[in-house]
Deep mutational scan, measured.
Amino acid sequence: DFYKILGVPRSASIKDIKKAYRKLALQLHPDRNPDDPQAQEKFQDLGAAYEVLSDSEKRKQYD
């Protein structure tokens, strides 16, 4: 669930989604977690979630 990945409720605004994405991107970035083999995958999932939820048309289709 993309909302769960970003840690935001379904009613979150685009601004809230962007804020959550930036915070998590810093935490999950593979360069900051060189010892975590799943860091790259988590970071890619985060990017996919943000791409869908930050675009109003894609978000409507997802919901």
Rank of each mutant, 00 (worst) to 15 (best):
K4P: 01
D45M: 15
D31I: 08
G7M: 04
V8G: 00
L24K: 14
V52H: 08
L6E: 02
N33I: 05
Q61E: 15
A25W: 12
K18H: 12
R59L: 01
V8Q: 04
E41H: 07
A48K: 14
V52W: 06
E57P: 04
A48P: 03
D1A: 03
G7R: 09
A25G: 06
Q44K: 12
V52N: 03
E41S: 15
D36Y: 06
R32A: 11
V8R: 00
P9A: 10
A12T: 05
S56I: 14
D31F: 04
K23H: 11
L46V: 12
V8A: 02
Y3E: 02
D31K: 12
F2I: 04
D55L: 02
S13P: 12
E51G: 09
K18F: 03
I14Y: 15
D63V: 09
K58W: 03
P9C: 12
I14H: 13
H29Y: 06
Q61C: 10
P9E: 14
R22H: 13
N33V: 06
K23L: 13
R59V: 00
F2E: 03
Y50I: 05
G7A: 07
Q44A: 10
E41R: 13
I14E: 15
I5M: 15
D16Y: 07
P9D: 11
A12P: 00
Q44R: 13
K42P: 02
L24E: 08
R59W: 00
K23V: 13
D31Q: 08
R32S: 11
Q61M: 15
G47Y: 06
P9K: 15
D36Q: 06
V52T: 12
G47K: 12
R22G: 11
L28F: 11
S56A: 14
I17V: 09
E57N: 05
S11M: 05
Y62F: 13
R10T: 14
F43A: 04
R10F: 07
N33D: 04
D36L: 06
F43Y: 15
A25F: 07
P34V: 11
D45G: 11
P9T: 11
A48W: 09
L28E: 11
H29F: 03
Q44H: 15
L26W: 12
G47H: 05
A12S: 07
E41M: 12
K42M: 10
Q44N: 10
V52F: 04
L26V: 09
